[in-house]
Design a protein around this nucleic acid. Structure first.
Lengths: 104, 104
DNA sequence: TTGACATATCTAGAAAATTAGATATAATAT
DNA sequence: ATATTATATCTAATTTTCTAGATATGTCAA
């Protein structure tokens, strides 16, 4: 986990929102996919299309952002069929909080 | 304190370094100013010139960066004579750590 | 196999950040 | 008053980020 990459990833309002939305997916993505049983898709995260709709930006931009956040270690993804589900990587997020608390 | 501004301020290696250096000014600015008695100048922070020298970048850039970090709430400044001393704003830094821990 | 759909990648123009030189301002020393 | 020094601000060139349209890839359904 490179702290600079985390700071960069979160220095954009849309990306910061995405990370916060994914903290409570049931709350922010209520009419979620239905491509899969509820418990599976929430455990696996939220699909790109649902995030795009909520973020009100283009498909390519969302895909780019999600990839950027994954590179920074903030998200991880799983593919089920044609859908890619993104969810938070809580371990990195915790590590970053600890890094900030102790080293900044 | 606007979290986005803090993320932006720290998404640059030089600025992140400055914040870390100012955590232990005696360690990172040993031959510090001498414009003022040691305890005064460390309490008041480190002057722009010393930070510039350490950061190895131009005077205007450092001044710009310090101002940016102050706007974000990460630093505060005091002027003694012709020197401006910058120091950390520990309250904001603590608030941000808490924000990250609880809301991100 | 073909068609439709979800997502990723490529490309490029627009916007913002980075950076330093030039200049302005403010304080001190002579 | 003038010269010097420290810092701030202005300006502009360069680099990076943002963003979306176009296209490619992968998967499923008919």
């Amino acid at each position: 986990m490179e702290p600079i990459d985390v700071f960069k990833a979160l220095s954009n309002e849309i990306r910061l929102n995405i990370l916060q939305w994914l903290k409570e997916p049931e709350k922010h993505f209520p009419k979620q996919g239905a491509h899969l049983p509820k418990e599976v898709s929430y455990k696996g995260g939220v699909c790109v299309g649902d995030i795009q709709e909520k973020a009100k930006t283009s498909q390519s931009t969302v895909s780019h952002y999600l990839n950027m956040m994954q590179q920074a270690g903030l998200l991880e993804s799983v593919r089920y069929g044609k859908w890619t589900y993104y969810r938070r990587n809580e371990e990195t997020i915790r590590q970053f909080a600890e890094y900030f608390r102790t080293e900044i």
